[in-house]
Computed example of a mutant assay.
Amino acid sequence: MADKMDRRQQRTKQLLYDALMSLIEEKGLEHVTVTDIANRAEVNRGTFYLHYQDVPDMVQQLKEAVFEQMRTIIVRIDPQQSIQYANKNEPYPVIIELFEELGKHADFYRVMLGPKGDLSYAIQLRKLISKNVYEKFNYLPRSNGLPVPIDYMIAFVSSANLGMIMHWFESGMSLTPREMGAMMTNIINFGPLTTFGLRDLPVRSPEDHEQMKET
């Protein structure tokens, strides 16, 4: 009986989720009401309130669940490991995993990051990427020791990565997670000009080749 009830609740929450996503695309997040969601899901308002307090509560619960799954992957991204894979002309596995996770929630990201979604969520994701980049490069000097101030570098990297993710959704995810992982690995490590073929790859030293063999 409990399993049957759990399946029924999961099905109801899926109906409510599908209704919310479609309504956001049509009306914009700020204009969606509980009545709209209940009518679209073909359930009564009481059923909605069994799961959520109101529309903002529903949206917040969804955002937190998806965000936490994303966070557990992003914190594992290691720039030094990424360099090793880029030198071998291979995509960094953690970035592939990132795009696989994004693909699992494609409808959610496409809607929430879209023009009628929630701008604050895009900002939250960018801050998550920025925080991770900053922590991984905390050994770098914070003043004039860098050709580009670290805060500008982090702003560029986080915004560029989020832009690639958003374009992937906008273009119908025509590239696989592995293809996206390979592209992002190269851009992160070699920059856009080299990745686009406008500059040659940097010449590797003998030490670099030895490091590639070891990995």
Rank of each mutant, 00 (worst) to 15 (best):
L23R: 07
L62I: 09
Q60C: 04
M70Y: 14
V34Q: 10
H51L: 13
I129K: 12
G117V: 01
K127L: 12
D78E: 15
I123R: 15
L113S: 00
D54S: 02
L98F: 04
E100N: 13
Y121S: 09
S120I: 01
S120G: 07
K13C: 08
I123T: 10
T12Y: 15
H31Q: 15
T35G: 07
F99E: 09
I77S: 04
I95D: 02
H31G: 13
D57Q: 04
D18I: 00
A41G: 01
D57R: 09
A41D: 04
P79F: 15
V43L: 11
E25H: 01
R76D: 12
D118P: 01
K88V: 01
Q53F: 03
A86S: 13
F67W: 06
R45H: 01
Q69Y: 09
H51A: 14
R76H: 13
L15Q: 13
E90G: 15
T33E: 07
A38V: 14
G103L: 03
G46L: 05
V59W: 12
G114T: 03
D57L: 04
E97P: 08
D107I: 06
I95G: 02
R76W: 08
F48C: 09
I129S: 05
T35H: 09
Y85H: 14
Q81S: 09
S22K: 11
V55T: 05
A86R: 10
K104H: 04
R126W: 13
F48D: 00
Q61G: 12
M112H: 01
P56G: 02
E97Q: 13
R126D: 15
I24Q: 09
A106S: 07
Q60R: 06
Q81W: 03
H51K: 10
R40P: 13
A19K: 10
P115G: 04
V94T: 10
L102G: 02
E90Y: 13
K63A: 12
Q84P: 12
G114S: 08
M21P: 00
D18E: 14
M58R: 11
T47H: 02
G46K: 06
Q14S: 11
Y17G: 05
R110G: 01
G117M: 04
H51E: 05
F48G: 02
Q124S: 15
L102C: 06
Q61K: 12
E42F: 04
I74M: 07
T12S: 12
L113N: 00
Q61L: 14
V66S: 07
E42Y: 08
I24W: 07
Y52Q: 00
R71Y: 07
Y121C: 05
A38G: 09
L16R: 04
L20R: 03
M21Q: 14
M21D: 05
R71H: 03
P79W: 08
L50N: 07
E101H: 06
H51N: 14
L16E: 04
S130I: 10
R76Q: 12
E100F: 00
Y92H: 05
L113C: 03
R40M: 05
T33V: 11
K88C: 08
A106K: 15
V55R: 00
R71K: 04
Q53M: 09
Q61V: 06
K88D: 08
M70S: 03
H105Q: 11
Q53C: 07
I74L: 02
N87K: 14
Q53Y: 04
M21E: 08
T35S: 12
E97K: 12
Q84H: 11
H105V: 00
